[in-house]
Design a protein around this nucleic acid. Structure first.
Length: 135
DNA sequence: GCCAACGTTGGC
DNA sequence: GCCAACGTTGGC
């Protein structure tokens, strides 16, 4: 069981839309590091759903329901995607500010590599953020 | 809206 | 295979 963090700009694809749709394929990733992270995902892995640009907070949790397969929106066929299903809300969204203010979370890719849109999360980071989010 | 960080492209 | 130019992301 592995944990991840995925980012979405809420005016492109928001947590509300994800919840309404239930399951959505995560297309449009055009970065090898992010793509490789998705390749490593297994069914049942969970991920934090983070709003970038606007909001800047973790608003919910999704689960991998389909493993890496080709992204049909990539004209060159180099990148793939996975499907995520909305699982639950963060009762109390955890903001980037909160994360930056927490020394135990300072090593997260979210902080260190702000442009990476799909990144791994360690179990202790996952547990701590879940607790901060009221779960 | 600006700009820093950083990944990608393409000429050599 | 190097590296400058360029494009994109995302926090502020």
């Amino acid at each position: 069981m592995q944990y991840w963090l995925i980012k979405s700009e809420p005016f492109k694809w928001s947590w509300d839309q994800q919840k309404e749709k239930g399951t959505e394929h995560w297309d449009g990733v055009r970065n090898y590091q992010a793509s490789n992270n998705m390749k490593a995902m297994k069914i049942g892995d969970q991920a934090f759903f983070y709003h970038s640009n606007k909001g800047l907070e973790i608003v919910g949790i999704v689960e991998v329901v389909k493993e890496y397969y080709p992204d049909h929106t990539d004209p060159k066929g180099r990148f793939g995607m996975v499907d995520f299903k909305a699982v639950k809300d963060m009762p109390k969204p955890v903001t980037l500010k909160d994360i930056k203010a927490t020394p135990a979370l300072a090593d997260m890719a979210l902080v260190k590599q702000s442009r990476l849109s799909v990144s791994p999360v360690k179990k202790d980071e996952w547990d701590l953020i879940s607790k901060m989010g009221g779960l």
